[in-house]
């Protein structure tokens, strides 16, 4: 327990340190305002990555399934949200987020129930099916919505930046961070404080025993898969005003989410949380400072963690 608390503190320190270093470096070469915007961009990206990685990690932890459709579900969510807001005048982003999340969750449920379930003994087969599905979803989005990016409007009351100490803070990005943290707390409470969460934890720790004591593990699978898919879909809409919906969004997000999960450790909510913000900072500051090599910089945290802790910072199970 002691060592896990120490690690927690160390990891949080690492996040703060990466952020502070990046912030002060950028502030010294550019301006404080620029650094503030980049920091909030990092936090917003970290928040979105957390929503994506948390679902991925939960599904992996419970079902031992690397769900490669997760990036495609994020993109699909963004498109559905954009579509809802375009088709129905006056629908707010939050309603679109909810609608999109529910639709994507239902699709995830169908995928789990009718396809992945059939391959439960074949983990490579499951991965390949999710990969195949991600191609199908991505191409279907291209057919339906075309190749041009579709912008998702920022909610009107979050458009104006907040002015504080003479600096402007982009409000929408702040809102994304707050929402991600709320979601993190909600997920934590769900896992640690509810009956459903207890059943999920039991399934993660010992599937056979969980079944033996009468936990409906297969229903749990569907529920967790739908939850993960729904969060990914909703996150797509939430990211919409920042990134908009475009073809290739899936291929941009999935590797980041994978790196987050590798970094934080599969099956660990807290790992996904810390990993997301580390990657959010590293990627955003990397892009701002060395736009050409932002992807190379992503290597560094990943290699460091894999070298010293192959199961990830907070992973209890080796992948």
């Amino acid at each position: 327990m002691q060592s896990s608390q120490t690690r927690t503190v160390l990891a949080l320190l690492a996040v703060v340190l990466v952020g502070a270093l990046g912030f002060s470096y950028i502030a010294s070469i550019r301006s404080a305002q620029f650094a503030i915007v980049q920091t909030l961009n990092s936090l917003a990206l970290g928040g979105l990555l957390f929503l994506l990685a948390a679902g991925f990690s939960l599904i992996f932890g419970l079902m031992r399934l690397a769900n490669l459709t997760h990036g495609a579900l994020f993109m699909l969510g963004a498109y559905i949200g954009a579509n809802i807001m375009r088709s129905y005048e006056g629908v707010s982003l939050w309603v679109a987020m909810l609608g999109s999340g529910i639709l994507v969750a239902l699709m995830g449920g169908v995928l789990e129930r009718f396809v992945l379930r059939k391959l439960s003994s074949n983990s490579l087969g499951q991965v390949l099916v999710t990969l195949g599905m991600s191609f199908i979803i991505a191409d279907a989005c291209l057919i339906i919505w075309g190749g041009d990016p579709i912008p998702v409007p920022t909610p009107p009351d979050l458009r104006a930046p907040i002015r504080l100490f003479g600096y402007a803070f982009p409000t929408y990005r702040l809102a994304v961070v707050v929402l991600a943290i709320v979601a993190a707390v909600a997920l934590y409470l769900l896992l640690e404080r509810t009956r459903l969460g207890a059943m999920i934890r039991a399934g993660v720790d010992d599937m056979a025993m969980a079944r033996a004591v009468g936990i409906p593990v297969s229903k749990l699978f569907t529920a967790v898969f739908m939850l993960g898919a729904g969060i990914a879909g909703a996150a797509g809409v939430l990211g919409g005003p920042i990134m908009s919906a475009y073809p290739g969004l899936d291929a941009d997000m999935l590797p980041l989410a994978l790196i987050v999960v590798i970094l934080g450790g599969v099956g660990s909510l807290f790992g996904a949380f810390v990993g997301s913000f580390i990657i959010g900072f590293v990627y955003t500051f990397g892009t701002a400072l060395l736009p050409d090599l932002a992807y190379v910089i992503l290597f560094l945290p990943m290699i460091l963690v894999i070298a010293f802790r192959p199961q990830g910072l907070f992973g209890r199970i080796a992948a």
């Binding site: 590797p255 992503l298 290597f299």
Partner: peptide, 18 residues
């Protein structure tokens, strides 16, 4: 450093970085 699905995820992430 990993095998199974971890290996798959790391190889995927590395290739996506390239």
């Amino acid at each position: 450093r990993a095998s199974g699905l971890g290996f798959l995820m790391i190889t995927l992430a590395l290739s996506q970085v390239l």
